[in-house]
Computed example of a mutant assay.
Amino acid sequence: MAVLAILHNLPLIAALCAIVAAQFIKVPIYLIAHRTWNVRLGFSTGGMPSSHSAAVTSLATAIGIRNGFQSSEFAIAAIVSAITMFDAAGIRRHAGMHASILNQWAKSIPGISSQEDSLWTELNELLGHKPSEVFVGAIFGILVSVVLHSITLLF
């Protein structure tokens, strides 16, 4: 019974589908843009589109569709969406930029990153998103909810 209830929870299903789909399409988008495969993008943060943005906007849209865009639930989801997207394009993006600079410094200082027993581990640079990646992720998330809602109307 509980599994069936979860399967009828449009906001949850929409958000999960948006995350998975956004992560999946990062790989072919990267291939088209850079002419090389990077399958790791499907399992990492950063890249086009933002799966975080897709998830939260899909969640907010589905809540708005189900509970009304005037509902408190939609208001909460919309604010959480805004904060998440602001963070992805702001703080997390800048943390990735800082990681890039630290990696460059470590590589330029003899002995830090070249030693086998070094404590230095290269930092992940792909943490946040460009504003365009956040925007595309947000539009993608909205579309996922609208499409899933339309499909549910058929059944």
Score class of each variant (00 low, 15 high):
residue 39 V to Q: 05
residue 66 R to L: 14
residue 108 S to Q: 01
residue 38 N to M: 10
residue 56 V to R: 06
residue 102 L to V: 04
residue 90 G to M: 04
residue 32 I to Q: 03
residue 115 Q to K: 13
residue 25 I to R: 06
residue 76 I to F: 11
residue 51 S to G: 07
residue 60 A to R: 12
residue 60 A to N: 05
residue 73 E to C: 01
residue 50 S to C: 07
residue 18 A to L: 05
residue 9 N to S: 13
residue 26 K to E: 00
residue 101 I to G: 01
residue 7 L to T: 10
residue 19 I to H: 00
residue 83 I to W: 06
residue 34 H to D: 06
residue 100 S to K: 14
residue 45 T to E: 13
residue 94 H to E: 14
residue 32 I to E: 02
residue 112 I to M: 02
residue 80 V to R: 08
residue 88 A to E: 10
residue 13 I to A: 13
residue 115 Q to A: 15
residue 56 V to D: 02
residue 55 A to P: 05
residue 95 A to H: 01
residue 78 A to Q: 11
residue 17 C to Y: 14
residue 71 S to K: 10
residue 87 D to L: 00
residue 75 A to P: 05
residue 109 I to W: 03
residue 67 N to A: 15
residue 33 A to D: 10
residue 71 S to M: 01
residue 39 V to M: 10
residue 97 M to A: 08
residue 51 S to Q: 01
residue 103 N to H: 12
residue 109 I to D: 01
residue 86 F to M: 08
residue 112 I to Y: 02
residue 44 S to V: 13
residue 107 K to T: 08
residue 49 P to N: 13
residue 23 Q to F: 00
residue 104 Q to T: 12
residue 36 T to Q: 11
residue 84 T to D: 03
residue 89 A to R: 03
residue 89 A to T: 08
residue 44 S to W: 08
residue 26 K to L: 02
residue 109 I to S: 01
residue 55 A to K: 00
residue 35 R to Q: 14
residue 60 A to W: 13
residue 45 T to C: 12
residue 40 R to I: 13
residue 59 L to T: 00
residue 37 W to C: 06
residue 11 P to M: 11
residue 17 C to P: 13
residue 40 R to P: 08
residue 46 G to L: 08
residue 46 G to I: 05
residue 105 W to C: 14
residue 27 V to A: 04
residue 112 I to C: 09
residue 67 N to T: 02
residue 31 L to Q: 05
residue 26 K to C: 00
residue 45 T to Y: 01
residue 92 R to L: 12
residue 13 I to M: 13
residue 34 H to W: 05
residue 115 Q to H: 12
residue 95 A to L: 05
residue 83 I to F: 09
residue 69 F to V: 10
residue 12 L to E: 07
residue 71 S to A: 11
residue 85 M to K: 06
residue 41 L to P: 00
residue 48 M to D: 01
residue 14 A to T: 10
residue 42 G to I: 08
residue 60 A to H: 13
residue 47 G to N: 14
residue 22 A to H: 02
residue 106 A to R: 04
residue 99 A to S: 11
residue 43 F to T: 10
residue 107 K to S: 08
residue 58 S to Q: 04
residue 65 I to F: 12
residue 65 I to C: 06
residue 97 M to F: 06
residue 111 G to E: 09
residue 45 T to H: 12
residue 103 N to Q: 09
residue 108 S to M: 03
residue 37 W to R: 07
residue 104 Q to E: 15
residue 65 I to D: 04
residue 13 I to K: 14
residue 29 I to C: 10
residue 11 P to A: 10
residue 84 T to C: 15
residue 33 A to Q: 15
residue 89 A to P: 04
residue 15 A to L: 13
residue 17 C to R: 14
residue 28 P to M: 08
residue 83 I to D: 07
residue 33 A to N: 11
residue 11 P to V: 01
residue 41 L to T: 09
residue 36 T to F: 09
residue 46 G to C: 11
residue 100 S to R: 15
residue 13 I to N: 13
residue 57 T to E: 07
residue 63 I to C: 04
residue 81 S to G: 07
residue 8 H to R: 06
residue 8 H to I: 06
residue 42 G to F: 10
residue 32 I to N: 03
residue 84 T to F: 06
residue 22 A to K: 02
residue 88 A to T: 04
residue 108 S to D: 02
